[in-house]
């Protein structure tokens, strides 16, 4: 019993790192994803082409490899490696997920009928006003389900941070395994993920329900 408590506390500290990485990744990748979606939709062809290539590369290369690249490559190129392993993981995750999110945003924005833009325009609204007051709320309604999916995947992808020795929950369990020769803590981590993903699922359900007062 004492051992169970001790392991739980240790895993919790690891899960704290997972959560911190998760929340910071969302904070950076959601706005960045929106910006990238604007880039890919730019009417200026070279800009949209450039952004599409970036999205293709980032989505085409394994995330684990990107984590390695962000951690090691600056060291080769500039001679100064990224100081913090956590920061390297955060940058890699943020860039990677921003590209996935950008495609969701793009689909959501393009699904709003052109008439909505035009109605706002003929009422003398600026493009920015139409986007923020009219279009974006409808985009949010449309993208809650696919975003929910992607964000749940993100929770589990956090485990990849261990490849550069960020001590998140699974790394923690591996350390316990190495030090105490007990394997069950590794399987026990699943409980943490399940509870967290369960809470997120409820949250997305709630957001979806809150948006259901109108139809598009």
């Amino acid at each position: 019993m004492e051992l169970f408590l001790e392991v739980t506390l240790k895993l919790l500290s690891g899960f704290g790192v997972t959560c911190k990485l998760f929340i910071l990744t969302l904070v950076f990748s959601l706005p960045l994803g929106l910006l990238i979606s604007f880039g890919t939709m730019s009417r200026f062809k070279p800009v949209s082409a450039l952004f599409r290539v970036v999205v293709w590369i980032v989505r085409g290369v394994p995330l684990m490899l990107q984590v390695f690249i962000v951690f090691y490559v600056p060291g080769f190129v500039f001679g100064t490696p990224i100081a913090e392993r956590f920061d390297a993981a955060l940058i890699a995750f943020s860039l990677n997920y921003a590209c996935y999110f950008s495609e969701i945003f793009r689909a959501g924005i393009q699904a709003v009928p052109r008439g909505q833009w035009e109605a706002g325009a003929v009422l003398g609204m600026t493009k920015a006003q139409v986007f923020s007051r009219v279009i974006f709320p409808q985009v949010v309604k449309r993208i809650v389900p696919p975003m929910g999916n992607e964000i749940i995947t993100l929770v589990k992808d956090m485990a990849l941070a261990r490849v550069i020795s960020v001590v998140e929950i699974i790394k923690k369990a591996e350390i316990i395994l190495a030090e105490n020769a007990i394997i069950w803590p590794l399987f026990y981590t699943a409980a943490f993920y399940l509870i967290f993903v369960g809470a997120l699922t409820l949250l997305f359900g709630y957001i979806e329900k809150k948006q259901s007062y109108y139809k598009i």
Partner: peptide
């Protein structure tokens, strides 16, 4: 301008 398809803001 009043549109054929109304284009009210649904939200």
């Amino acid at each position: 301008l009043v549109f054929q398809s109304f284009n009210l803001f649904p939200q």
